[in-house]
Design a protein around this nucleic acid. Structure first.
Lengths: 359, 359
DNA sequence: CTGTTAGCGCGTTCAG
DNA sequence: CTGAACGCGCTAACAG
């Protein structure tokens, strides 16, 4: 039975060294044993010592198979061109910066529970992201999953439920009765308009993300509420993701060629904001004297890049951390309410917004 | 033997449905069979059909155990405060932007080989990153590993070799005889100085990353070469990571209080560059009229943020992609040269640099 | 207190 | 062309 060809020690090797059975070692190492009752203190010591000396570690696949648990959570990033990201010519691909915050936060949060994060198949040319996700679920490659970037017609919650894999939605789920935690994008849309209106702006340009995304849809709702409440009917110009490729930059360049420039702009995200700032700068308009600009803060390090930008902090890392905690709890068998949890955005007023110029 | 309590079908369930043995199904599904010779074409069809209908997927842990392969590669990100990242008060943590590029590129590259990316334990308070890595290796949680952010005294290559786990170094390895692919940071240091010198600058401020990192060390080498070659001895001011917390911003603010301002600045990375730009702006200095600024481009999306910044593109995603390809080849058993591969940086000249002002 | 036994689900001989 | 049998390394009941 001795196979010392492998570089790593197995349970059996440790057992042989000490002169006890495998199960004895397993129990001691897993703490499934009360000292001085289920096991002799001396034996225990010898086992622990031997394991340490031999640098023993349980084989993960074997342990997973036996325990029925992987201690891995998968993050389902959809990186298909049609969904979220753009592949690059040199064979790389560009992750939207907001993933950065999510990945960091999730990795950190889950590691506290002894759970590793697996980045799920990214689509790429020709592969179906949803099929990839289903495969991951049905192969039991992970104990649970976190899905993001929900679309209004997203079928993923349904599919995951059918596969029986626990999951948490980061964002808003189109399907009720699932565990979800996200940003309150209705509030984002509403507060953006409300804030700019409160500064005195009556002509606002609102760039939204695509309406095929839940977040875009919700933001649109809030936007409409505010538009009505503040009677801004004709004073608002609205565009969403469908209209431009490079965020607000191209769209705004186009818009600036026409007369009657708005006095305030809400950009869909940081990239949009930088685009907008560039377009304004090229047109010789000053911020905030001529035009106010605000956006959403997705990636925290962006604050360092543009410390002067007024933002609605959409708390990506907090939302992701919450999602991680919830998933961990579910995996531990704790009861978790199957409903949406929405965090409110935080307005951070800085130097890129102000009252409109007097005409 | 029938256990239909599980939501997912097992090999045996498929076999029972068709009326053949498990091994038969396994072989057919894995293509370990010549049609019309090892198996009846009709039988084969029925097996395939049944598997599809039942939505069968092999259980990953079981498959891994049997095959001795996980199809997972781990990325060892060191996120300890002492190493790379800063934990945040709200329980999140901030990933340096350059990880973003690496993660995206690796995920994409490896997925082409059917390999998933596992983000390895991030340290956090009190946990030893190296121990975490060793655990990951010895538990055989992955088939191979990619390690980054090499330090000059890094013990990880040694430890991984001892554990027998294949790995690739992304960056420069302090230990020879391992597979490594990185940026030529000697060239980075050298070319930065050379370029600024060629513009006419004779008083340059060079911010480097920490000398405890291989990249910092190499950059310093190149820097010294250039300084000597161009006879810039006293015309250069050099600082490295040890001197400041918030990158170039704080350091430069301090420096600008003193007379004899340099005419050009090389910042250690994008964040440093933004800090430098801010410090200059606050001091009323124009770029590039009064001071030229350049840095390294780590994260591609930063080009969109600051399209006007002159950079040395350090090609993070290409380097990471190369590392991914190499690891995949190693895992496939292909021979790979055990030596460093260094990509040269690409100078991208834009608007933040120019000739020095005439005094 | 300890060892024996039986799986976990899949891959792979090896006789039939 | 097929099925029985064994092993991957570990966990967990169940006897002693």
């Amino acid at each position: 039975m001795e196979k010392s060809d492998s570089l790593v020690a197995r349970l059996e090797d440790v057992a042989a060294r000490v002169g006890v059975s495998r199960s004895e070692v397993s129990r001691v190492l897993n703490g499934r044993v009360r000292v001085g009752k289920d096991v002799g203190a001396a034996t225990r010591e010898r086992i622990l010592e031997a394991a340490r000396e031999m640098n023993y570690r349980p084989h993960r696949a074997a342990q997973s198979l036996a325990r029925g648990r992987t201690d891995i959570a998968a993050l389902m990033m959809v990186i298909d061109r049609d969904w979220q990201l753009s592949p690059f010519s040199n064979g790389g691909l560009e992750l939207s910066p907001h993933y950065h915050e999510i990945i960091g936060s999730l990795t950190y949060t889950l590691s506290q529970y002894g759970i590793h994060l697996l980045l799920a198949q990214c689509g790429g040319e020709g592969s179906d992201p949803v099929a990839a996700m289903e495969k991951l679920a049905r192969t039991r490659s992970c104990d649970g999953m976190i899905i993001t970037d929900m679309r209004v017609d997203d079928t993923r919650p349904q599919i995951l439920e059918e596969s029986g894999l626990p999951f948490v939605v980061r964002g808003s789920s189109p399907k009720a009765g699932v565990v979800a935690v996200g940003m309150d994008n209705v509030a984002v849309g509403y507060q953006a308009v409300k804030y700019l209106h409160s500064l005195g702006h009556r002509h606002i340009l609102f760039y939204n993300i695509g309406l095929d995304l839940m977040s875009g849809q919700r933001r649109f709702e809030g936007f409409c509420q505010a538009r009505e409440e503040f009677g801004l009917g004709s004073g608002i110009e609205y565009y969403d993701g469908a209209h431009h490729e490079n965020g607000a930059y191209e769209a705004l360049c186009e818009r600036l060629k026409c007369p009657n420039i708005p006095t305030a702009i809400f950009a869909e995200d940081e990239m949009g904001a930088f685009g907008a700032l560039r377009a304004l700068s090229e047109a010789g308009l000053r911020v905030p004297e001529d035009v106010s600009v605000m956006t959403c803060l997705n990636a925290r390090f962006m604050r360092q890049v543009a410390p002067n930008l007024t933002v609605l902090n959409v708390r990506q890392s907090e939302v992701a951390a919450q999602a991680g905690h919830l998933l961990a709890k579910i995996l531990q068998g704790e009861p978790v309410e199957k409903q949406q949890m929405l965090l409110p955005p935080l307005l951070e007023e800085r130097g890129s917004t102000g009252p409109p110029a007097r005409r």
